[in-house]
Amino acid sequence: MSVIYILLTISIVIAVLFFAAFIKAVKSGQYDDNYTPSVRMLFEDELVKNKTKKTIKNQKFN
């Protein structure tokens, strides 16, 4: 039953890791703006489309 020491250690270490990740996320400013990322996420398509357009254009000129 002393395996419980290992289990407890693992569970607490994992919990602490997640907690540290949370602190790091807050520190990096992730929670300062909680609206823009939700919009930005939807832009990926337009950006890709633009990039392909650009390369075609570049090929033409090169």
Partner: peptide
């Protein structure tokens, strides 16, 4: 607005990054 301002580097390559905070 967010889209165009975050793509400023396409207008001028010397702008390396731009990030909008919509709320502020």
């Amino acid at each position: 607005c967010i889209w165009i301002l975050e793509n400023l580097n396409k207008l001028n390559p010397n702008i390396t990054a731009s990030q909008v905070n919509f709320g502020k």
